[in-house]
Computed example of a mutant assay.
Amino acid sequence: MIASLSGTVLKVGLDSIVMGVGGVGMLVHTTPATATSVHLGQPAELATTLVVREDSLTLYGFATEAEKHVFETVQTVSGVGPRLALALLAVLSPDAVRLALGSGDLATLTKVPGIGKKGAERLVLELRDKLGALPGATDAAVPQPKPQHEQWREQVLEALVGLGWTARQADVALDKVAPRAAEGAGVSALLRAALQELGR
């Protein structure tokens, strides 16, 4: 595995860099932001991941270890390959990805080309816990713990599961409607609000 590259920038494209390392020009696929952060003829260092396929060896490069961690982790989800993982990082920073997954923010995730509503839901369900604390994340960006044992939450959760949603899907919706509970909304109103979130 090629974990990192240090060398001279030989060529810069829109989403790729050629780096000279030990007399060899290495093509590295990157986000546009990473490509514009390096300078032709200057030394650079990238965290990298080598993706091995039957017919190809493709190197992906990142400005930070946090980006590399997101890139590798999101590919553990079925249907997410390196191209889609790179597109995710092209649109969102690692912290933005973590916050979107932690809060079930489907609207933010679907801004990424290639990620629809169902794909965003799958990312949230499978990665919410895995990407809970990225390297370099600040305390201010860590979502506050949600109350888990309030009576309204248990009642609405039971109702949603009874309607066919999974407990994890229900939890995502409940996190979004929790502020309404704090404002004094009743169980029926909270159930309707949660159903609206799940129907988006």
Rank of each mutant, 00 (worst) to 15 (best):
A173M: 13
Q196L: 14
V156T: 09
H149A: 15
G162P: 04
G184N: 04
E154Y: 01
A185E: 07
S188E: 15
E154S: 10
Q148G: 09
A159W: 01
L160T: 07
D171H: 02
R168L: 13
A194F: 11
Q155I: 08
E183N: 13
L160Q: 01
A167L: 11
A159M: 04
Q151N: 09
R180A: 06
Q155K: 11
P179R: 03
A194W: 05
G162A: 10
D175Y: 07
S188Q: 15
A194K: 10
P179L: 09
E150K: 06
Q169T: 00
L195P: 09
R192L: 15
G162L: 08
R192M: 13
R180Q: 08
E158F: 09
A181Y: 01
R200Q: 15
W165G: 00
E197W: 12
L163N: 09
G184H: 03
A170F: 02
L157W: 01
A159D: 00
R153L: 14
L163C: 00
G199C: 12
R168C: 12
R153A: 11
W165M: 10
R192C: 08
R153E: 05
E197I: 03
H149Q: 14
A185T: 03
T166G: 07
H149S: 14
V172C: 04
L157T: 07
Q155E: 12
S188G: 10
L191G: 09
S188N: 11
D171Y: 00
A173L: 10
E150N: 02
A182Q: 13
R153Y: 08
V172Y: 01
Q196R: 14
L198N: 05
E197S: 13
G199K: 14
Q151P: 05
G184Y: 05
Q148P: 07
L174M: 00
L190P: 02
G184M: 04
Q151F: 07
P179W: 08
A194L: 04
A170L: 02
G164I: 01
L198E: 12
D171T: 03
E183R: 13
A194P: 10
R200I: 14
Q151T: 12
K176C: 02
G199L: 14
A181D: 02
A194T: 03
A178P: 04
L195D: 10
A181I: 08
R168E: 13
V177M: 08
